[in-house]
């Protein structure tokens, strides 16, 4: 018997878990204190035939960082010796800020961005809005600078698609809030 000869039989196939570790070194281009695995956007890493397939889900549909992230993944894994790579976009299930881990939330706070408060995502319905107008159900993020809970929204949209602009009414500093989606 002779072994089948394939062109890449000699190429190493690093374990997907190891590839994930490598990807945890790829920073988010807009918020470099957290990595793309912190953000929860790497949905799957697997070998298909001789090709490493990395599935990534976009945070926001039009976020310009998405294609930069894909390029960074390609560059980083090429440096680690991955010869055959395919980066695929996976839409479903859609990304949610619930996938941002506890450690990453602390990193965001230390960086000056209030981390998302789970359960505050808007569903855009009048009922939710009415509940908020009545003073219920809309938790405010604590100021990442002084820790005060007395904060107010300046704008529902901020410097990147994933953030809203807030202000602390105690220390008066404006800050970014990583809004829930």
């Amino acid at each position: 018997m002779t072994a089948p000869r394939t062109t890449d039989s000699a190429a190493p196939r690093p374990d997907p878990a190891l590839v994930r570790d490598w990807l945890s070194e790829v920073p988010d281009p807009e918020i470099p204190v957290i990595s793309i695995t912190d953000l929860g956007i790497v949905r799957d890493v697997a070998w298909e035939e001789g090709t490493l397939v990395v599935r990534v889900t976009p945070t926001y549909s039009g976020c310009p960082a998405t294609s930069v992230i894909e390029m960074e993944i390609e560059r980083h894994l090429a440096e680690r010796g991955v010869a055959s790579l395919r980066v695929e976009r996976q839409l479903s299930p859609p990304w949610t800020t619930d996938w941002i881990g506890a450690e990453a939330r602390e990193k965001l706070r230390a960086y000056g961005i209030a981390p998302p408060i789970d359960g505050t995502a808007s569903d855009g319905r009048l009922a939710a809005r009415a509940a908020r107008l009545a003073g219920g159900g809309n938790a405010s993020p604590a100021c990442p600078r002084c820790g005060s809970a007395r904060t107010e929204e300046v704008s529902r949209f901020g410097s990147t698609p994933c953030k809203a602009a807030w202000r602390c009414t105690d220390c008066l500093e404006p800050f970014d809030y990583f809004k829930c989606i």
Partner: peptide, 23 residues
């Protein structure tokens, strides 16, 4: 259609914020 459904599910999370603001 799974393809239509998955794009809509993605987009509607963003559009919820659009409506909140414009409303």
């Amino acid at each position: 259609s799974p393809r239509l459904a998955e794009i809509a599910a993605k987009a509607r999370k963003e559009v919820a914020y659009h409506l909140e603001r414009s409303q």
